[in-house]
């Protein structure tokens, strides 16, 4: 098998990689937002369950989570298909990390912003939605791209719960032809081509956001 045949063979798994990534985002983004905001806003004992849930998803290895939900839930009569399990475990794992960025971004916002919002008669909830979250979203874009990259890389594990993504395709090909350097070289190339644009975008956003916040924090005298 030539390198290009191997490469094309691997790309047959691209749709699975992309599907798991896309559905993974559907779990990751809402979870990161809700958990991060909840952890920031709740106090005392109400915060404990949120922290526990975040820690559960963050501290358990993804592979263990996948096995857990794919192989042990059926014992309890719950059947989830492999795509759902993969998207959920990867998404919530990455989302749990994301929640900590959300929280950090909320804490980093100038307290004066919240006070100004309250002082013109907005409710705390309106302040969150119209003042804090929009500013935070911009500040968080670079982090978001990084976590997206982690998610895509995490999809390489789905082969272990029977899905045929790019990594699984590589393993299949290695049984047809014994050429590990070509096969895994092609696999790396595939991930690189998929992720390189994201890393470039991430770096670009970091620069743009950095410049913006530099300006916000008062380059000009009297701007403050």
């Amino acid at each position: 098998m030539s390198f290009s045949e191997i490469f094309l063979g691997i790309l047959e798994g691209l749709d699975v990689t992309l599907t798991v990534t896309a559905f993974g985002l559907l779990f990751a983004i809402p979870f990161a937002l809700v958990a991060g905001v909840a952890q920031q806003f709740l106090t005392g004992w109400k915060r404990a369950p949120v922290t526990a849930i975040i820690e559960f998803w963050r501290s358990t290895p993804i592979l263990v989570l996948m096995f857990m939900f794919y192989y042990t839930l059926p014992v309890a009569g719950v059947y989830l298909n492999a795509t759902t399990v993969a998207a959920m475990t990867l998404g919530l794992h990455i989302g749990a990390y994301g929640s900590q960025s959300v929280r950090a971004a909320l804490q980093a916002l100038d307290r004066g912003q919240v006070e100004a919002g309250l002082a013109i008669g907005l409710t705390r909830w309106q302040v969150l939605l119209t003042i804090e979250l929009p500013q935070m979203a911009v500040a968080m874009l670079p982090t978001f791209v990084n976590q997206f990259i982690q998610l895509v890389k995490g999809t390489a594990l789905v082969a272990l719960i029977t899905m045929t993504d790019m990594t699984a395709r590589a393993k299949e090909l290695s049984q047809l032809t014994f050429d590990p350097p070509a096969i895994y070289g092609a696999l790396m190339l595939a991930y690189f081509l998929l992720l390189y644009p994201a890393t470039v975008l991430g770096r670009h956003l970091e620069r743009v956001v950095g410049r913006r916040s530099g300006r916000l924090n008062g380059g000009r005298a009297g701007d403050v």
Binding site: G112, E115, A119, I120, L122, Q135, V138, V224
Partner: peptide
């Protein structure tokens, strides 16, 4: 009771006009 702060505390992600209309459209 309106309040004006030492550090202005305008909302940097909104135009001057939106800074002014925000509470009117949301709260009122």
């Amino acid at each position: 009771v309106g309040m004006v702060f030492q550090q202005f505390n305008l909302f940097p992600h909104l135009t001057v006009l939106r800074n002014c209309t925000l509470a009117m459209t949301r709260a009122l």
